[in-house]
Simulated scan of single mutants.
Amino acid sequence: MKRIVVIGHGGYAEGIKQNLDMIVGKPENMYFIDLTREDDLADLEKKVDGLLESFNDDEVLFACDLLGASPFRVAAMACVNHPGKYYTVAGLNTMAFIELSIESDLSIEEWADRAIETSKTALVKFPE
């Protein structure tokens, strides 16, 4: 099974969850973790590790708010410990999250690539 873990600062993950719930319903394969003001890096690592333990041997795609920030670093370390099974992306937009909410036959790496490409193609300027 493939799982997506949305992780970010403040209410980022909860905001994505509410956004998706309004548009497509609650995604079955997505999980949401926020780094709060009260959390330190160890707290965030515990939240992530606790969730990952419940996944058994599933593939995981982390979707983080900011490249290089604490949530990204925690996710990246999990990827280092699970090469080829875990991937991390950052900066996705709503279109990409909608696509990720739909089950896919793509590999976890292909899914990560598609989410990034979807974010890129959904960017527009109006009027052109």
Rank of each mutant, 00 (worst) to 15 (best):
G10D: 13
G11D: 09
G11M: 08
Y12S: 09
Y12K: 12
E14D: 14
E14F: 05
E14W: 02
E14T: 14
I16A: 08
K17P: 03
K17W: 13
K17T: 06
Q18A: 15
N19R: 15
D21A: 15
M22N: 14
M22S: 14
V24S: 11
G25K: 11
K26S: 15
K26T: 15
K26I: 14
P27A: 05
P27M: 05
P27V: 04
E28G: 13
E28Y: 12
M30Q: 08
Y31N: 08
Y31Q: 06
F32I: 09
D34R: 05
L35F: 06
T36N: 07
T36A: 07
T36P: 00
R37D: 12
R37S: 13
R37Y: 11
E38G: 00
E38T: 06
D39M: 05
D40F: 04
L41S: 11
L41K: 11
L41D: 09
E45I: 07
E45S: 09
K47P: 07
D49I: 01
G50H: 10
G50P: 05
G50E: 10
G50L: 10
G50S: 12
G50I: 11
L51I: 11
L51W: 03
L52P: 01
E53L: 12
N56C: 12
D57T: 09
D57L: 07
D58A: 14
D58R: 03
D58S: 13
D58H: 09
D58W: 00
E59S: 13
V60I: 15
L61F: 08
F62R: 03
A63T: 05
C64F: 02
C64Y: 02
C64H: 04
D65F: 05
D65I: 01
L66W: 10
L66S: 00
L67S: 00
S70K: 03
S70D: 02
P71N: 10
F72W: 07
F72T: 01
A75N: 04
M77H: 13
A78V: 05
A78S: 11
A78Q: 08
A78M: 07
C79W: 03
C79F: 01
V80K: 15
N81H: 14
N81P: 03
H82Q: 14
G84V: 00
G84P: 04
K85V: 01
K85C: 00
Y86F: 14
Y87C: 00
Y87E: 06
T88C: 11
V89H: 04
A90E: 01
A90T: 10
A90P: 00
G91F: 04
G91M: 10
G91H: 01
G91E: 08
L92I: 09
N93I: 01
N93T: 07
M95S: 13
M95L: 08
